Deep mutational scan, measured.
Amino acid sequence: DVEPGKFYKGVVTRIEKYGASINLNEQVRGLLRPRDMISLRLENLNVGDEIIVQAIDVRPEKREIDFKYIP
């Protein structure tokens, strides 16, 4: 289970102007929005990149997770 405040290694699977889709595994994925990137710009991400993200909002009833990137 993903817990708010914990850090996870994820893989960038899609990049859109509203954010990047991050997969932690086949069943768990979430969104990294541009506003939640401290020192990383969306255009510097590539599909397949592995990054460390922090879960900031977990809504299991909607199967949604928001991530934050902290270098």
Rank of each mutant, 00 (worst) to 15 (best):
D66Q: 10
P71R: 08
G30M: 05
D66P: 01
E3Y: 12
E61Q: 09
V12S: 00
E50T: 14
E26W: 12
N25A: 09
I56Y: 13
I22A: 01
N44K: 06
L45K: 02
I70E: 10
V28P: 01
F67N: 03
I52A: 03
G19A: 08
R35K: 14
P71C: 15
I56V: 10
Y8Q: 00
G10S: 01
P60D: 11
V12H: 00
L40S: 06
G48L: 03
Q27V: 13
Y8C: 11
E16T: 15
Y18Q: 10
K68T: 07
Q27W: 15
D36T: 04
N46W: 09
V28L: 13
D36E: 04
I15P: 00
Y8G: 00
Y69W: 07
D49T: 05
K68Q: 11
D1C: 15
D57Y: 14
Y8R: 00
L32E: 02
D49Y: 06
E3M: 14
M37D: 06
F7V: 05
I51D: 00
K9D: 01
V47W: 02
L31S: 03
K17D: 12
L45E: 00
E61S: 11
Y18T: 11
T13I: 08
G10D: 01
I56A: 06
E16A: 12
R35P: 05
G5F: 08
Y8K: 00
G10I: 06
N44Q: 14
K9G: 03
A55Y: 07
V58L: 05
L32K: 02
L24I: 14
M37P: 02
D66A: 11
D66I: 14
E43P: 04
P60I: 09
L24P: 01
N46V: 11
F7A: 04
N23E: 15
F7T: 04
D36A: 05
Y18P: 01
Y18L: 08
P34I: 11
V47M: 05
I70W: 13
I52Q: 04
N25C: 10
R63Y: 12
R29C: 14
D57L: 12
I70G: 06
F7C: 12
P34V: 10
R35A: 14
I22G: 02
D57G: 15
K68I: 08
D49L: 05
N46G: 08
D1V: 14
K62T: 13
D49W: 06
K6P: 01
R33C: 07
L31N: 08
I22C: 05
K17T: 12
R33K: 08
D36Y: 07
L31M: 14
G30I: 09
V28G: 04
R29I: 14
K68D: 02
Q54S: 06
P4V: 15
Y69S: 03
V12Q: 00
R33Q: 05
F67R: 02
N46T: 14
F7W: 11
Q54D: 00
R59M: 04
L24Y: 01
K9S: 07
P34M: 08
E50V: 15
Y18E: 13
K9E: 03
P34W: 11
R33Y: 04
D57S: 15
D66H: 12
G5N: 07
L40R: 04
Q54H: 04
N23W: 15
V11Y: 12
E61L: 09
S21E: 14
E43R: 08
E43Y: 09
L24V: 10
I51C: 02
G19Y: 11
I52H: 04
V12E: 00
D49Q: 12
R14A: 13
I15T: 03
G10C: 10
E61M: 08
I22P: 00
F7D: 02
R14T: 07
V2L: 10
A55V: 15
G10A: 10
R63E: 11
S21D: 09
I51F: 03
M37V: 05
I56L: 12
N23A: 15
T13D: 06
V11G: 00
I65L: 08
R35M: 10
T13H: 08
L45V: 06
P60S: 09
D1H: 14
G48P: 05
E26R: 12
L45A: 00
I70L: 10
G48Y: 02
K68C: 10
V28I: 14
D36F: 07
Q27Y: 14
I56W: 08
E50G: 07
L42Q: 02
D1T: 14
V28M: 07
E43G: 07
